[in-house]
């Protein structure tokens, strides 16, 4: 962890005109919006087709593209300090860890629940 990469290397001298943040171009914001609306339309449209086991993956894939667009442009991650993006990705990684292991276990022990349900029915 190189400290100069973290926000505000502290010894930034007294400065009246260091820009505080990047201003995103209007064109980019509008393009992203159009893309998001289009993706929403697509995801609704494809939900009427059956891809079998891939249904969920398709829906979540589109959602992830949309989320990435929002994060990169609306939330400025593309232009801001890379550290914000890093911690955001780490957070999502921990979400995955939590969800992944818990699900793995739940699926593993589920047969014991099923046999119980069958025997009491």
């Amino acid at each position: 962890m190189d400290h100069t990469k973290t926000p505000s290397a502290p010894n930034s001298a007294s400065q009246a005109d260091v820009p505080l943040a990047h201003v995103v171009e209007l064109r980019i914001l509008l393009t992203v919006f159009a893309a998001l609306i289009m993706l929403t339309a697509i995801t609704v449209a494809v939900s009427y087709f059956d891809f079998g086991a891939f249904n969920l993956s398709v829906a979540l894939g589109v959602a992830t593209i949309k989320a990435t667009l929002v994060a990169l442009y609306f939330m400025h991650l593309r232009y801001d300090n890379a550290f914000y993006a890093t911690i955001f990705v780490i957070a999502v990684g921990f979400l995955g860890l939590f969800l992944g292991i818990t699900m793995l276990d739940a699926v593993e022990y589920y047969p014991d629940v099923q046999t119980w349900q069958q025997s009491t029915r």
């Binding site: 962890m1 400290h3 973290t6 926000p7 505000s8 502290p10 010894n11």
Partner: peptide, 10 residues
């Protein structure tokens, strides 16, 4: 992160 003094790296 943001308030370390000059000369105090991580």
């Amino acid at each position: 992160h943001t308030m370390r003094p000059p000369g105090m790296g991580w």
